[in-house]
C-alpha cells in the first residue's frame, strides 16, 4: 500500500487546497464575560479557546516580579477529547510545558509589557480539537483574546505552520500532512514590521530550502493576519452597535 500523496501533480493537497492556501478560519471574540479577554478560533478542524486575565498584581511568589515590565504567564493544555486517540493528558507534561514556554516567548515579544511594571498577565489556551498546527492556532487565538482584553500589543501576532513536500512549501498543515513526513516549521510573525516573534523547527532541513520555506511562512502569516484583522473589526462593530456608541 502506498502512503498518502500529499501533493498531486495537479497541485492539489489531500483536502483539496492548493499549496499556499490556508484552511478556513472562523473566530469569535469575547466568548467569556468573566474573563478580561477571550476568543475561540477554528482553523479547519483545529479548534482552540484562549482566555486572558490581567494585567493584575503579581500573585504567588513576589520574587518573580519585574520592576520595569509585566510578567507574562502562559498555560497551554489539550483537552482529553481533542485527538482521535483518547489519551490521558496529565497536567504539565513535557510537551505542554514546552508549548507554554513557546507561547510565553511569543507574547513577551509582542505585548507592550513595559506599560505594566510589577504586574502579571495570564494567558490560558486550550486545544479542544487537534488537527495540525496546534501551536499556530493557539497563538492566533491568544492574540484575539489579548486584543479583547484591551492589552496593547506592537502588532497582531500571527502564526502559521508550513511544511515542505516535493520541493514545494505547503501552508497551514493539517494533521495528515504534519504526520506524513517531511519537515515542518512554525513561525509567529508581527506582520506589519515583519519581525519574527518565534520560529520553531524540529526536523532537519537543508539550508538551501530554508529561504523558500520562510517566505511561504511569512506570506501565510500575513494571510492569517488579514483574517484576524477582519474578525477584530467585525467584533468591534458588533460591540459598538450593542453599546450604542
Amino acid at each position: 500500500m502506498a502512503g498518502l500523496e500529499l501533493l498531486s501533480d495537479q497541485g492539489y493537497r489531500l483536502d483539496g487546497r492548493k499549496a499556499p492556501e490556508l484552511r478556513k478560519v472562523q473566530a469569535r471574540m469575547g466568548v467569556f464575560a468573566q474573563a478580561d479577554g477571550s476568543a475561540y478560533i477554528e482553523q479547519g478542524n483545529t479548534k482552540a479557546l484562549a482566555v486572558v486575565y490581567g494585567p493584575h498584581e503579581m500573585r504567588g511568589s513576589r520574587s518573580r516580579t519585574l520592576h520595569d515590565r509585566a510578567v507574562i504567564n502562559c498555560q497551554y493544555s489539550m483537552a482529553t477529547f481533542s485527538t482521535a486517540e483518547r489519551k490521558r493528558r496529565p497536567h504539565g507534561d513535557r510537551k505542554s510545558t514546552e508549548m507554554s514556554l513557546h507561547l510565553k516567548q511569543t507574547f513577551e515579544a509582542a505585548v507592550m509589557t513595559q506599560l505594566y511594571p510589577r504586574s502579571q498577565i495570564d494567558i490560558y489556551v486550550k486545544v479542544l480539537q487537534a488537527d495540525g498546527g496546534n501551536y499556530s492556532v493557539c497563538v492566533n487565538a491568544a492574540t484575539l483574546a489579548v486584543i479583547d482584553a484591551g492589552i496593547p500589543m506592537r502588532d497582531y501576532v500571527c502564526a502559521c505552520t508550513v511544511g515542505f513536500v516535493d520541493e514545494t512549501p505547503l501552508a497551514d498543515l493539517c494533521f495528515a500532512e504534519e504526520s506524513g513526513g517531511g519537515s515542518s516549521l512554525a513561525l509567529a510573525l508581527l506582520p506589519r514590521g515583519g519581525q519574527i516573534a518565534l520560529l520553531q523547527m524540529d526536523a532537519r532541513l537543508h539550508q538551501d530550502h530554508l529561504e523558500t520555506l520562510m517566505e511561504a511562512a511569512m506570506t501565510a502569516c500575513k494571510g492569517v493576519s488579514k483574517v484576524l484583522d477582519e474578525v477584530v473589526r467585525q467584533h468591534l462593530q458588533e460591540v459598538s452597535v450593542l453599546t450604542g456608541e
Binding site: N45, A84, G223
Partner: peptide, 26 residues
C-alpha cells in the same frame, strides 16, 4: 478565494480510530 469554498466533512473509520478530515470543494 479562500471563502469561496464550501465545506464538507468526510469521515473515515479504520479500526477503532475515527478520523475526521476536511474536504474542500472548489
Amino acid at each position: 478565494m479562500l471563502k469561496s469554498k464550501t465545506f464538507v466533512k468526510k469521515t473515515r473509520s479504520g479500526g477503532v480510530m475515527k478520523i475526521v478530515r476536511e474536504h474542500y470543494l472548489r
